[in-house]
């Protein structure tokens, strides 16, 4: 396996293998020497056309833990702002000897374009492309659920509810694909404007009422950030009305079971899609997600890059 641009490139076996490796690599983070020599001499470029703090830092630390050299490339401060195309940027990085490019781009399909056009010989990791996919986020969510639910290899029978702005969410798309692949039962919930019926074709249930979806007693509730930067036009009347119906707060928060896991990919809009009460609850696994993000990205970089020496 050379690139990871979509969860569709994985089968059940390879997804479980990545989670298993991530579990083992996580142990390094509690050691005194937090470094492994596996990618010594390799260069990883973080090519970010969109703002990101946690994903970029997570990939950067992951690559450094594996002893790779890391170059951070933020489009806003580079020649891209002078109009350089993705192709020219990629070929420049190739000429400078990049062994892997971790790309985040506002355009859906950018990672796949980079991986398949033959511009570069290295690996491509999709760190989020438009509203298409964000595979490492789905992997870290799956790992978090697997660890907390102690569900063995896969997620068979675990009920996952994903709530909010599904339409603009690459996190939701990657999660629907991966969690279903691992045997979980996925339900999507959101207002009609942000949850088109077409999602049913991905093999998950759809609900337009948060309360009804919670009455099904999900094992995991994943709240999504409302992606205002991707919205052209009006998708809901006002923030207050959205929060009144779709925020994890008040009565809806009280409907959660004792063992229900609360997930959020971050950054959280407290008081909007999630209340302070829910975000700081012991059932919230938000920081476990961040820790697992590091392990999963180490496992992915290792899988793609080791062995092409």
């Amino acid at each position: 396996m050379k690139h990871l641009t979509s969860i569709r490139e994985l089968d059940t076996g390879s997804a479980i293998a990545i989670l298993d490796n991530a579990d083992e690599l996580g142990a390094v983070n509690s050691r005194e020497v937090k470094k492994l020599p596996a990618l010594r001499g390799k260069t990883v470029v973080n090519l970010f056309y969109e703002n990101s703090t946690r994903t970029r830092i997570s990939f950067e630390i992951a690559a450094k833990r594996l002893s790779a050299d890391v170059i951070n490339f933020a489009a806003a401060t580079s020649s891209v702002s002078k109009g350089e195309s993705l192709k020219d940027t990629a070929q420049t990085l190739e000429a400078l000897g990049a062994d892997a490019i971790v790309i985040r781009h506002p355009m859906s399909g950018a990672a796949q374009t980079l991986a398949t056009k033959g511009w570069i010989s290295g690996s491509v990791v999709n760190a989020g492309d438009g509203s298409h996919e964000h595979p490492t986020q789905a992997l870290l969510d799956a790992l978090t659920i697997r660890q907390i639910k102690k569900s063995g290899d896969d997620l068979a029978g675990i009920k996952v509810l994903i709530v909010g702005d599904i339409q603009h969410s690459r996190v939701a798309r990657s999660n629907v694909l991966l969690l279903s692949l691992l045997g979980a039962e996925v339900t999507l919930a959101g207002p009609e404007t942000l949850l088109p019926k077409t999602f049913a074709a991905m093999g998950c249930k759809i609900s337009h009422s948060f309360e009804e979806a919670l009455a099904e007693k999900p094992d995991v509730v994943m709240m999504l950030r409302v992606q205002r930067e991707r919205m052209q036009g009006t998708f809901f009347p006002s923030e207050r009305e959205y929060a009144a119906k779709w925020s994890l707060s008040g009565e809806r928060f009280k409907m959660l079971g004792n063992q229900t896991i609360i997930l959020h990919p971050g950054p959280m809009n407290r008081g909007f899609e999630i209340s302070n009460e829910a975000a700081d609850d012991p059932r919230s696994a938000v920081l476990t997600q961040v820790r697992n993000g590091l392990s999963v990205r180490m496992a992915v970089l290792y899988k793609l890059m080791a062995g092409e020496g």
């Binding site: 298993d20 083992e24 596996a38 793609l304 080791a306 062995g307 020496g309």
Partner: peptide, 12 residues
């Protein structure tokens, strides 16, 4: 010689 990247990482 970690040419086989499919090699499983085992617990230490």
């Amino acid at each position: 010689d970690s040419l086989d990247a499919e090699r499983e990482i085992r617990p230490t």
